[in-house]
Design a protein around this nucleic acid. Sequence first.
DNA 1: CACATGACCTAAC
DNA 2: TGTTAGGCCATGT
Length: 93
Amino acid sequence: MTGTPFQNRVWNEIKNIPAGQTRTYKEIAVSIGNPGSSRAVANACAANPNPITVPCHRVIRSDGRHGGYSGPGGASGKSALISSEKEIATRNT
DNA sequence: CACATGACCTAAC
DNA sequence: TGTTAGGCCATGT
């Protein structure tokens, strides 16, 4: 899984995203220390070998739209996953 | 080192 | 509001 240090930071930040919460690629880029690498961040997710262990489905664009998802369900399931996790977070409160 | 690719972002038409 | 153009960064060839 440990590919490039950059990807590692990206996946790490994504894994740090709390359930029900969504982060934009730019936010992640800033979190890892590369506020201008929003594109590379998306690439890291796309290159992420564990689209399931990594909640890349919580990562969305600045427009609020979903970017993509190489895991099960695809970009469509991505929104479903977000809604489900959002529901979980709401239930926990 | 240079070129090509991509789940992006911003601005302009 | 929807599409097009340019720019940015990391990775792979």
